[in-house]
Simulated assay, not measured.
Amino acid sequence: MDVLTDAVTAMRTGHPHSKRHVLTSPWGMHFRDDYGAAFHVVLQGSCWLLPPGDAAPIQLGVGDVVFLQNAAPHGLADHPDTPTSPFDPTRQDAPPAGDGAATVLLCGAYVLDVARPHPLLATVPPMIHLPARLGQRDSLRAAVGMLGDELSNPRPGSTGVVGAFIDTLLLYILRTWFEEQAREVPAAGWARALHDPAVGGALKAIHDAPERDWTVAGLAATAGLSRAAFAGRFATLVGRPPMKYLTWWRMTTAARLLRESNQPLATVARQVGYASDVALALAFKREYGLTPGRYRNGHSPAAPKIHQTLI
């Protein structure tokens, strides 16, 4: 698995959700305060995004994509001056609308564990706006088109297809943003790390085999750099030294395995590079503040909370 896929997989829990809305002006929707990630895509017509906080409204046209990493209160409306009404996406009620010009929106959300975000996603701004650009972002537009088609024309198998397309769309949105950031001069941080042959190669090696007995020298050899040059470059781009990142990723992977499987602790330990369940338990408690068993059972109030957003 690659680093971006791993980062999203580590945070995601539950099933993503998406819905196609047909609205006629005047209309305005206010989305409640939740944690997770949400996206909006304009399939037809135009509208205005009313961002969180005091940010100025943003006009959206056909093909525009908006991604909100933490779905803070925000609104969508046919005009910035149109009053917005609270919209509960968990209900089947149609959004408020009038009898004017039509706008078709594709809206969706991901259920994320925000208690321990991957540092890669921590560098993503609270809101990403990807305007439609002719001849660019073809993969992203294709994913949007296929998802919109499945939602407007459900067929046998659509339930599984829609979930896969929503997952794919999230990766396309993030990949597009990181690729465009990497082209900035000067590029820095995770946008550069993912595209840096040395650091990117070392990250891939860690994610491909977290159970290996990695050392800084071994990772430097994988990166094709001296030990000192690699350690400095890695820490600058990733934000932490190689061994600290390795430990963090091992603990994050262990937590996901504890949440999602009933594997014995000794098996989980071997998969993340620890010789015994005792060694893993000690490292896990240092990182999370509770034992793997208590984390798995979810009895402790200190256990990371899972927040859900449905849009």
Rank of each mutant, 00 (worst) to 15 (best):
F165Q: 13
D167P: 04
D167T: 11
D167S: 12
T168V: 14
T168I: 12
L169Y: 06
L169E: 09
L169M: 09
L170S: 14
L170I: 07
L171T: 15
L174F: 06
L174C: 09
W177D: 06
F178Y: 13
E179D: 15
E180Q: 14
R183V: 07
E184K: 08
V185N: 13
P186L: 12
P186G: 08
A187I: 13
A188L: 13
A188V: 15
G189I: 03
G189W: 02
G189P: 00
W190K: 05
W190I: 03
W190G: 03
A191G: 09
A191K: 04
R192K: 12
R192H: 07
A193G: 07
A193V: 03
L194H: 04
H195P: 01
H195M: 11
D196P: 02
D196N: 09
V199S: 02
V199F: 00
G200P: 01
G200T: 04
G200F: 05
G201K: 01
A202L: 02
A202P: 00
A202W: 00
L203P: 01
A205L: 05
A205K: 04
H207R: 08
H207T: 12
A209M: 09
A209H: 08
A209Q: 10
A209N: 11
P210C: 08
E211V: 05
R212M: 14
D213F: 07
D213R: 11
D213Q: 13
W214H: 14
W214S: 07
W214Y: 07
T215Y: 03
T215A: 03
T215K: 02
V216F: 00
V216K: 01
G218A: 10
G218Y: 08
G218C: 10
A220I: 06
A221L: 12
T222W: 04
A223L: 08
A223T: 08
G224Y: 05
L225G: 03
S226N: 10
S226D: 12
R227A: 12
R227S: 10
A228S: 14
A229N: 14
F230G: 08
F234Y: 12
F234T: 14
F234P: 05
A235M: 11
A235P: 05
T236E: 15
T236K: 09
